[in-house]
Nucleic acid binder design. Structure first.
Lengths: 232, 232
DNA sequence: AATTTTCTAAATCCATGGATGTAAATCAAT
DNA sequence: ATTGATTTACATCCATGGATTTAGAAAATT
C-alpha cells in the first residue's frame, strides 16, 4: 500500500443518512484520509466540492432528489481533477457503464465489504481506475454488446460496398452537409455530374433523398470506411 | 480454482515459433486443458477454428503477415462462441481498447508471469472477461478520454437547447429521414406547420438545410437528449 | 390581467433537389 | 480486341424544399 504525503481530502455524498454515517466511521478509522464534509444532498454536495475541492468524492448515485450521475457530470465539468467513486446499491450494467462513461474513477456496491471500499479508494487516489472484478466483467460484457452491433453492421450486406470510389467521395461530402454546388466546386466537376453521382448513390443505397443517404452512411460505418481508406 | 467437466479445448496462434512452444509447454502442464492445435499463421488459425471449434483461442495480435485484430474479428463473425484472449507484446491503450471492442475476452502481455496467463484462461473459460488490473486501468483511461469529448460537446453552447419541445419532435423525425409530408402525417399537423417548425429549427441551429440540421443534431448528442427525456 | 412563447396554419415565390434518358471518353478486365 | 464499368456531362421536367410574411389560439410566465 502506498503512503501519501498529506492526508487525502474526502467528501461523502449519500442521501441515506444511516449509510452515510457508516461510511464516515469506516473511513475515519483510516489514518490516510481526512473527511472534509458529508451531505445527503446532491446539490449541496456540488457546492461543497467547489468550496473544499476534495481529492475524492464518494457519490451515491441512487438518490431520488437529484440524479447522482448528473451530479458526477457537474463535478467533472468543474475540472478540478476531483476523483469520483460511485456508490450504488445495484450492479446494473447500464448504470456501471454510464458512470464510467462520464468519468467516475470507480464504482463500488454498498453491499461490498468495507475493505473493498478502502481498497478502491486507495487505488483511485493513486491515479488508477478501479472496478471490482465482478463489476468490470459486467462492464465489459455491456461494452462488447454495445460495440458488437457497430462492427457487425459493417459486414452483412452493406450497400455501401457497391459504391464506386468517386461515389464514395461524393457521399463523403454529402455527409458534411454540402449541396450540389459545393460538391461540384470541391471536386472540380460540373453540378450536373454531381447530380448523376448522387442519383446513382440513391439507387444503390435504396433511399429517396440526401438526408436518408447521409443517415444510411453514418449508421453503416461509412466514416470508418473512409478513414480506413485514408490510413491504408 | 474451478473444475471443468471436460477438458477445455485450446488453440494457440502465434507467429513467433519460440513463444508458441513456450506457451504450449506451459499449458500442457495444466491438467484442465487440451491443446487441439497450434499454428504460426493467422489464416491457418482461422481454418483450425472452423475445423476444431475450440473453447478458447490464444491469439498473438502482433503478427506481420495478417493483423491479429482482424483475425479475431473473423473468428467472432463465425459465431461459434469461441472465447479469445489476445496476446501482445505491447500494453498500448489503443490496442487494448480495439481488442476488447471487437470481442476479445481477455488481453495478456507476453511479458507477464505465466501464472497470470493461466489465471486469465481460467477466468475467461468460466465466462468472465479478464483484463489484468494494470491493463484495465489503461483501458478505462482510454475509454474515458474517448467519451469525455462526446459529453463535453453536449455542454458549451449547444444550440439544441434553444429548441422547443415540438421542434425537438420534428427534428427527431428529420433525423430519421422523414420528409415534410411524412412528418405532418406522424404528428397529425399540416405540412405547412411542419415547414414553419423546420424553418425555425434552421434559424436556431444556424444551418441552411435539413441535412445540415440532421448532422448538427447527431454531432451534438441529440439522440442522447431525446432518450434521456424518454427515460425521465 | 397582461405579456410572451409556443404551436398551429396558409400564401407566395423562388431555389434546389431528384428522376430519367442520352452519350462520350477513359479504364480495367476478359 | 471487345466488353463492361466508371466518370464525366447535359437537357428536361416536375417535385420538394426553403425563405418570408402574416396571423389566430393556446399555454406559460410575469
Amino acid at each position: 500500500m502506498r503512503e501519501f504525503k498529506r492526508k487525502a481530502r474526502v467528501l461523502l455524498i449519500d442521501d441515506n443518512a444511516d449509510h452515510l454515517r457508516g461510511v464516515k466511521e469506516l473511513i475515519s478509522l483510516e489514518t490516510n484520509y481526512d473527511i472534509v464534509g458529508t451531505t445527503t444532498s446532491a446539490n449541496m454536495g456540488i457546492n461543497l466540492v467547489k468550496k473544499y475541492q476534495p481529492d475524492l468524492v464518494l457519490m451515491d448515485i441512487n438518490m431520488p432528489e437529484k440524479d447522482g450521475l448528473q451530479a458526477i457530470q457537474e463535478i467533472e465539468k468543474l475540472e478540478l481533477g476531483t476523483k469520483i467513486i460511485a456508490l450504488s446499491g445495484y450492479d446494473d450494467a447500464d448504470l456501471i457503464f454510464r458512470a464510467m462513461k462520464i468519468g467516475a474513477k470507480g464504482y463500488v456496491l454498498k453491499t461490498m465489504a468495507s475493505a473493498q471500499l478502502i481498497y478502491a479508494i486507495d487505488e483511485v487516489l493513486s491515479g488508477k481506475v478501479y472496478l471490482p472484478s465482478a463489476l468490470s466483467s459486467r462492464f465489459f460484457e455491456y461494452f462488447q454488446r454495445t460495440f458488437k452491433e457497430e462492427s457487425s453492421n459493417q459486414n452483412e450486406e452493406n450497400l455501401l460496398n457497391y459504391l464506386t470510389s468517386r461515389e464514395e467521395e461524393v457521399l463523403d461530402l454529402l455527409t458534411q452537409g454540402n449541396n450540389y454546388k459545393a460538391i461540384a466546386g470541391k471536386l472540380f466537376i460540373s453540378e450536373t455530374t454531381v447530380k448523376t453521382h448522387v442519383n446513382n448513390i440513391f439507387q444503390k443505397l435504396q433511399v429517396n433523398d440526401r438526408t436518408q443517404a447521409v443517415l444510411y452512411a453514418l449508421n453503416n460505418g461509412f466514416a470508418n470506411k473512409v478513414r480506413a481508406k485514408i490510413s491504408a
